[in-house]
Amino acid sequence: MQFGIFTVGDVTTDPTTGRTPSEHERIKAMVAIALKAEEVGLDVFATGEHHNPPFVPSSPTTMLGYIAARTERIVLSTATTLITTNDPVKIAEDFAMLQHLAGGRVDVMMGRGNTGPVYPWFGQDIRQGIPLAIENYALLHRLWREDVVDWQGRFRTPLQGFTSTPRPLDGVPPFVWHGSIRSPEIAEQAAYYGDGFFANHIFWPKEHTQRMVGLYRQRFEHYGHGSADQAIVGLGGQVFMRKNSQDAVREFRPYFDNAPVYGHGPSLEEFTAETPLTVGSPQQVIDRTLAFRDYVGDYQRQLFLMDHAGLPLKTVLEQLDILGEEVVPVLRREFAARRPAGVPDAPTHAALVARRAAQAAGDASGQASAPAAS
């Protein structure tokens, strides 16, 4: 199982000091957080994509390419790549290039985003959000797997004899997660292609996440990709930790109360009771995270949101130390002990290359033996 962090890259005033970091400071902080994630032994760093204030990560592949050059092991991903407003051709080429630069340590999460004005900024209509997501990904899927593509659809100019460059590393595209908060159509899309499904899991009650993941698993099996428990599932989560829970609650409360997304709404106590947000001791985070398995089944990737709402970089780095030293080692051990033998590991580039080679060998063996059998 993979453990990591994802960032939305918000530039938010620290409510305890009144200081707002500059965009430059926030971008550099995101890089520092990614480097720290590798240092403490996490598996994944993921960045969102946003094109509006107060967010800075408008060019995820630029940032991930820079981080790739400064890391050796950690998988680099997106927490959202806007499949609706980005050209599939550009996505295909950008992420294939990143694959080569990072030596395969790349995957990607497709999403529609949650900011309505972005659509007209990129020449699209938000009312077509779901059809755009479906059509654009259908094209992207082909661009990574076919050397020459002819294409005609509703939302972009046709392609004739087009080859995206560079081709995916080792002939294997980046693994794709389809991320969603609330759209069953996206769970269906992930299942249709046999891709991963990432449930955001940070705003809604567990019953909602359970329904979404359950739908994806059911449809994954329906499309013949394997049994429901072999579907590839990822979850988001939010945590803030101190040695004792009272200190964690006291320190995090002003950040929660003024957060851009959920500030000035439900109380911290109400939100932690109704969603997976955990504010407390490391043991509380361990217990709460292990309980996710009770309602989504065994899953492959757990990402935590830790650097939002104006939290200073020093605090976020302290949180990563706690996560890497006290929480993740226990989670690895406990999840591994409870996982049935048939549940697959999280996909990696090396594993996907090996699977492709095994399939090719099997196909060749079948073709070679067919004449003798007849």
Score class of each variant (00 low, 15 high):
Val279Thr: 02
Thr163Cys: 10
Ile181Phe: 11
Arg182Trp: 09
Glu251Met: 12
Ala228Ser: 15
Asn258Gln: 10
Arg167Glu: 01
Val239Pro: 01
Gln284Glu: 15
Asp170Pro: 05
Leu290Pro: 11
Leu303Tyr: 06
Gln246Leu: 11
Phe203Trp: 12
Leu277Gly: 11
Pro260Tyr: 12
Phe292Val: 02
Ile186Thr: 15
Ile181Lys: 07
Lys243Asn: 11
Gly194Gln: 09
Thr209Glu: 01
Lys243Met: 01
Val261Thr: 14
Met212Leu: 15
Ser281His: 01
Phe240Lys: 07
Phe256Ile: 04
Tyr216Arg: 03
His222Phe: 12
Ala187Glu: 05
Val176Tyr: 02
Glu221Asp: 08
Thr278Lys: 05
Arg242Pro: 00
Gly297Arg: 03
Thr209Pro: 07
His264Arg: 14
Gln283Phe: 01
Pro205Val: 04
Tyr193Trp: 15
Asp195Cys: 06
Trp177Tyr: 15
Val176Gln: 00
Pro266Gly: 13
Leu169Trp: 05
Tyr216Gln: 06
Lys206His: 13
Arg253Leu: 12
Ala259Met: 03
Ile181Tyr: 12
Glu274Gln: 14
Thr278Ile: 10
Phe203Glu: 05
Ser180Tyr: 00
Met212Ile: 10
Asp298Arg: 05
Val249Cys: 04
Gly234Arg: 05
Ala259Thr: 04
Trp177Val: 06
Gln160Pro: 00
Arg288Pro: 01
Thr278Tyr: 09
Pro173Gln: 12
Ala190His: 06
Val249Ala: 13
